[in-house]
């Protein structure tokens, strides 16, 4: 755990060592706000809740999380520092976990930056803060799942741009499985069991359940086990790719 923490600390510092991190955070906070207030019609709805804010989170993350995850392993492989890291007394699991924690903490910081919006709805009315907290948890869990996927895919290549593009593609796939359009289209051609499987493996399905105010163990476990699976594959990929 100590080693994982040391690695996470270095990685998190690496995010902030370039102006990119600040650009990212500002872009995220600004677009989350803009989506909520302009696109989502926050004022027009005349409701004191954050449902418009959370509705847009998955789609914002689709572009932003791959940007956080892309450098985790691709950069390490490009520069060759992976050889230093993996010949220190560090297990693959500690390295994978440490890097993931750093990226996840970074998304956590981004989420914290949106709390003024939360404050705003409390100022304007009296929202159900329980639902909002559950939605924040759901958003954080979903961010983690997308990040784990992006981290895993970044181990496949030395090129951050390639890692970014394939991560967007993969994250989109995981996301849209539960969208109404996809489910309806699938229902025409596939048996119910497959439709149910695709829909239940979709991030959106689980995310929407939680943001509706039901933070149950099933959805939480879904995201957590998806993270664990991705990080496990991530570790395997690193082992396999070392030789090339």
């Amino acid at each position: 755990m100590r080693i994982m923490f040391i690695i996470a600390r270095r990685e998190l510092a690496a995010y902030f060592s370039t102006p990119l991190a600040y650009v990212f955070l500002v872009t995220y906070a600004a677009s989350a706000g803009a989506m909520t207030f302009y696109v989502g019609g926050f004022f027009a709805s005349r409701q004191a809740n954050l449902s418009t804010f959370f509705t847009f989170q998955p789609w914002l993350f689709l572009a932003l999380i791959p940007a956080i995850g892309m450098r985790l392993w691709a950069e390490e492989r490009r520069t060759g520092t992976i050889e230093i890291l993996m010949t220190m007394p560090v297990s693959t699991w500690e390295a994978v976990g440490g890097k993931f924690i750093a990226g996840w903490a970074f998304t956590g910081i981004a989420l914290l930056l949106t709390t003024p919006i939360w404050y705003t709805v409390n100022y304007l009315g009296s929202p159900d803060n329980g639902v909002i907290i559950a939605s924040y948890v759901a958003t954080f869990l979903m961010a983690g799942a997308l990040l784990a996927l992006a981290s895993c895919l970044s181990a496949l290549t030395r090129n951050q741009v390639i890692a970014f593009v394939i991560s967007i593609a993969a994250c989109s796939l995981m996301m849209v499985g539960g969208a109404d359009v996809v489910v309806a289209a699938l229902r025409k051609v596939a048996p119910a069991i497959i439709v149910d499987f695709v829909a239940s493996a979709s991030f959106l399905t689980h995310f929407v359940t939680i943001t509706n105010g039901v933070l149950d163990l099933r959805d939480t476990m879904f995201f957590l086990s998806f993270i664990a699976l991705c990080l496990f594959i991530n570790g395997q990929l690193i082992e396999i790719k070392k030789g090339s």
């Binding site: 690496a14 520069t79 050889e83 007394p89």
Partner: peptide, 24 residues
Amino acid sequence: YLPEGAPLYGDMTPEAYLDFSARI
């Protein structure tokens, strides 16, 4: 170990890098 080409974390300072190595 000094790997071929002496790879380093370019975004760190030598001080932070050595401290990181020593901690690990």
